[in-house]
Simulated scan of single mutants.
Amino acid sequence: MLPLPSAQQLRYLIALSELRHFGRAAAACAVTQSTLSAGIMALERQLDATLLDRTVGKKVVFTPLGHEIALRARQALLALEAVPQIAAAARTPLTGPMRLGIIPTIGPFLIPQAVTTVREHFPRLSLSITEDTTEHLLEKLSLGQLDMLVLAMPCLCDGTETHPLWQDPFHVIMPPGHPLAALQAVPVEQLSAQSMVLMEDGHCLREQTLAICRQGPSRNGSEGESDATFTAMSLHSMAEMVELGLGIAIMPAMAIDGGILQGRRIVSKPLTGAPASRTIGLAWRPRSPRASDFRALADTLGTLARPQTPQTTKKTG
C-alpha cells in the first residue's frame, strides 16, 4: 500500500497554494516557516514528485503536477474533516462553530436580526461572520473556509446547494426633481436611457442592475448598455451620489427598510417589470455533513422576512 500524506501535510500544501508565500502560509498553519518548508519537502519525497518549481527564485510557483495535487488535497481534506463533523452533527445538531459569509448589500441590514435570532433559537451555535463579495465568498466556501453563505440570487453559484429565503424587491432612488420622481412606479424599460450609479465590479447588485437596464433600448442605441459614470463601493456611497444628482440607482427594499435613506433628499419608487427583485438565499457545499443544520437555519432565517415564493432547496452545478 502506498503511504498516505498526513492531514498536516495537506494543510501545509493548501495554505501555500492559496497564499503563495512561505511565511504567510506558515503563520496561517501556526508553525514556523522552516517547519512548513520541511513538511512540503517531506511530502515531495513521499510522493516522489516535484510539487514546486524552485528554479524561479523566491517566488512560490507550483508545477502543473503540484497544482493538481493541491486541488486534490483540498478535496481530500474536506472529506477527512467531514468524518468528525458527521458524528458531531448526529450527536448534537446545531452546536459548535458555524462560519457564515454574507455579501455587503445584505450584511448591514440582516446581520443584527440574524445574530439575535440565531442566539435565541440555537444558543449552542457559535456564529462567526465574514462580509465579502459573492465571488470571494464562493471561493472561500469551496476551500472549506466558510460553511454557509447568504447571497443575492440569481448569481453564479455553480457547485453549491442553494435554498431561497425570500424576495427582496428593487426600488429606484433619485433626487426629488428627477422626471421619474413623478411616477407611482418605474417600469424597467425606463432605466435603459438613464445615467445610473452602479456598485463597483465584484458586487452582484451591479450585474443585476445592468441586466435590468438591458430591458429596453438605450439613448445611444446600443442595446444592453447604460450611461454609468459613477461607481460606489457601498450602498451608503451610492445613496450619497444619488443625492448629489450624479445619477439614479437601483436600491434593494431591504436597505431602504433598514433606514439607509433616512435624512436624505432622495425619492424612492418601486421598480416594476421583470426582473424587479432579487432572491435572498443560502448556499453551502453539496453533500455537506451539516446540511440538516443549514436547512434548519434556513427555516429560522426565513422568518425574518415574509417569503413571496415557495421555498425549495436545489443543487446547482
Results as ranks from 00 to 15, higher is better:
residue 208 Q to R: 07
residue 8 Q to I: 10
residue 123 P to V: 05
residue 5 P to E: 10
residue 27 A to S: 14
residue 259 G to A: 10
residue 61 V to I: 13
residue 233 M to C: 11
residue 2 L to H: 10
residue 121 H to K: 13
residue 210 L to R: 12
residue 56 V to C: 11
residue 148 M to F: 07
residue 233 M to Q: 14
residue 240 E to R: 06
residue 120 E to P: 00
residue 128 S to Q: 14
residue 62 F to E: 06
residue 139 E to H: 00
residue 281 G to R: 04
residue 291 A to L: 01
residue 28 A to Y: 01
residue 43 L to H: 06
residue 90 A to Q: 14
residue 204 C to M: 13
residue 79 A to F: 03
residue 167 Q to H: 07
residue 288 S to Y: 02
residue 101 G to A: 06
residue 170 F to H: 13
residue 138 L to Q: 03
residue 64 P to N: 09
residue 17 S to D: 15
residue 174 M to C: 10
residue 127 L to E: 06
residue 26 A to W: 03
residue 286 P to R: 03
residue 131 E to M: 10
residue 218 S to M: 08
residue 276 A to P: 00
residue 103 I to H: 01
residue 172 V to D: 06
residue 69 I to E: 05
residue 40 I to V: 15
residue 230 F to L: 07
residue 63 T to D: 08
residue 261 L to V: 07
residue 125 L to G: 03
residue 262 Q to D: 15
residue 194 Q to I: 10
residue 295 R to W: 00
residue 279 T to L: 12
residue 17 S to A: 15
residue 93 P to L: 07
residue 289 P to N: 12
residue 25 A to T: 09
residue 290 R to E: 04
residue 169 P to V: 08
residue 27 A to V: 14
residue 162 T to D: 00
residue 186 V to I: 14
residue 307 P to V: 10
residue 195 S to R: 15
residue 189 E to V: 13
residue 23 G to H: 12
residue 316 T to M: 11
residue 311 Q to M: 11
residue 62 F to T: 08
residue 162 T to C: 10
residue 201 D to L: 11
residue 246 L to W: 09
residue 214 R to Q: 14
residue 200 E to A: 14
residue 290 R to K: 12
residue 138 L to V: 03
residue 157 C to S: 14
residue 168 D to G: 04
residue 232 A to V: 04
residue 118 V to R: 02
residue 302 G to F: 03
residue 153 M to N: 04
residue 288 S to V: 00
residue 108 P to L: 04
residue 41 M to Q: 13
residue 21 H to A: 15
residue 65 L to C: 04
residue 257 D to N: 15
residue 287 R to I: 02
residue 274 A to C: 01
residue 204 C to P: 03
residue 120 E to K: 12
residue 263 G to D: 07
residue 155 C to D: 15
residue 278 R to D: 02
residue 148 M to D: 02
residue 283 A to H: 01
residue 190 Q to W: 02
residue 198 L to I: 11
residue 252 P to Y: 08
residue 97 P to M: 08
residue 197 V to R: 06
residue 53 D to C: 05
residue 298 A to C: 07
residue 256 I to G: 06
residue 88 A to N: 11
residue 157 C to E: 06
residue 98 M to Y: 01
residue 315 K to D: 02
residue 223 E to D: 12
residue 213 C to W: 05
residue 67 H to A: 15
residue 53 D to W: 10
residue 130 T to D: 01
residue 135 E to A: 11
residue 50 T to C: 10
residue 304 L to N: 05
